[in-house]
Write a protein that binds this DNA or RNA. Structure first.
Lengths: 250, 250
DNA sequence: CCGCTTCCTTGACTTGGATCAAAATTCATG
DNA sequence: CATGAATTTTGATCCAAGTCAAGGAAGCGG
């Protein structure tokens, strides 16, 4: 495991300086609400590879991902693993109404969390409208994403799974960077082949083979094994098996 | 498609008489809030097999399932289908913040919905705390369920998938009926083999074969092809591949 | 009661992805 | 920069589930 390439220059610890201020659970907070949140918040950092919490452990905080990538995974007794969540900047971790976590939460890159003690956070949720409203919206988005993922897991071929995964990353890249339209996209793969396999319900060998196949067919170009160039997004979309005209997201 | 065996004796249309009053989105409402909800509600009925809304269609209401079973499904261009939600009594349909649905919603049995016009409902959500709080809790539960489902889709064998599905139904039966403990459980299968296949990411032939295998091995007894008897729940649980001591749910 | 349709079961065969095995790259560290 | 560990690629083989095909059972309308 290695460094976080895009470490945020976020030093003051002041909400007004926060890179996820307008996308996270606090997005809609007014000054007063923000102040109340600020009173119960604290930062925690985890290095790449570190486990943030184990499934079943008590969790006395909830948190927003400020920077880095974390995963939620479930593991069966015999070691089979399935990733059930991929957490990026501004995503929320934990349930305000539950003291225990249901999944292993792992830092994939170096991760910075903005944590809130659970009880006070829950009280704030009851007392102020804007946090709950935003959290509801984010949770509904998560639910939609997990349902898209179900289609991938249940019905797509290995090649389509890989293409879909790459397309999701590429789409996110376009959104964050704001640069739309341009058909060519470059981005970093935050996951190992094994983690991709856990995400997609495949083995790492199959992931590797399909990546090679997509490369061979010119759908993607691998600069640096973890750095992906998609010369033509439309071409990649064709490989996902999804309806071309965005029907899936409607 | 046929009748709904357990049609509710719910005639007045009055919330105080409602079978899902204390489990649905209105569960926490006080008298005043309930009155406001009552002002914008209306009932709609759908017969078994009927499509409630098509993916991509505009939807000017949200709703609670009062009675019956409905499904959310995604369909790919070439006809591959994946069920992404199974909606039972008290479950919620739609997003207050979206005017279009992302999935086909279908009545599997006869279904009664308690609908709220979307805009007024959204306003109510902003104005009163209890509806949003309950909706958040329900959405988080849905998200957990869909993540459990992902593990099933991504990593379990066909036999484990079937066993897991039956176990989920059996568990729900125990909860609603309140009768805990007793190892033997009987319940109706609300889905056809094909719908089960869509749920589990299998073909209907594989579902049929695995059902036969579980019957042959004495894990289940089929009274009436749709009426399942589970003589020993522990035995069924063993077949799901999940951790025996509830570790999965923690 | 007959014929039709829908749903379910079972059999024979094929195949996509898993498994097993080994080698090639990449990366970290003394 | 040599050594060893981790990660990735590729090949050979196998098997669980898909596909194709044929019947059987249940329910329904005439």
């Amino acid at each position: 495991m290695s460094m976080n390439p895009s470490a945020p220059s976020f030093r003051t610890g002041d909400c007004s300086d926060c890179p996820i201020r307008h996308r996270a659970v606090c997005a809609r907070c007014d000054d007063d609400e923000l102040q109340q949140l600020e009173a119960i918040k604290f930062y925690r950092k985890f290095s790449a590879g570190e486990v943030i919490i184990w499934a079943g452990d008590p969790m006395d905080f909830v948190a927003s991902v400020v920077a880095g990538v974390a995963t939620l995974t479930q593991t069966m007794e015999d070691g089979r693993r399935q990733m059930v969540g991929l957490l990026l900047g501004s995503d929320f971790i934990g349930r305000p109404d539950r003291s225990h976590v249901a999944y292993d939460v792992t830092a994939i890159t170096d991760v910075t969390l903005c944590c809130f003690r659970r009880k006070p956070f829950r009280d704030l949720l009851m007392a102020t409208p804007h946090i709950g409203q935003r959290l509801l919206e984010m949770t509904l988005d998560e639910l939609d994403a997990s349902r898209e993922w179900m289609l991938i897991l249940g019905r797509k071929t290995a090649r389509e799974k890989i293409a879909s995964f790459l397309f999701i990353l590429a789409r996110r890249e376009t959104l964050t960077d704001g640069k739309a339209g341009g058909t060519s996209i470059t981005f970093d793969l935050p996951l190992t082949r094994e983690a991709m396999a856990d995400y997609l319900g495949l083995t790492l060998e199959t992931v590797s083979r399909q990546m090679s196949a997509l490369k061979r067919d010119g759908v993607i170009v691998l600069a640096d094994k973890r750095r992906i160039v998609v010369p033509d997004c439309k071409r990649l979309l064709d490989e996902t098996g999804d309806d071309a005209d965005g029907g899936v997201l409607a």
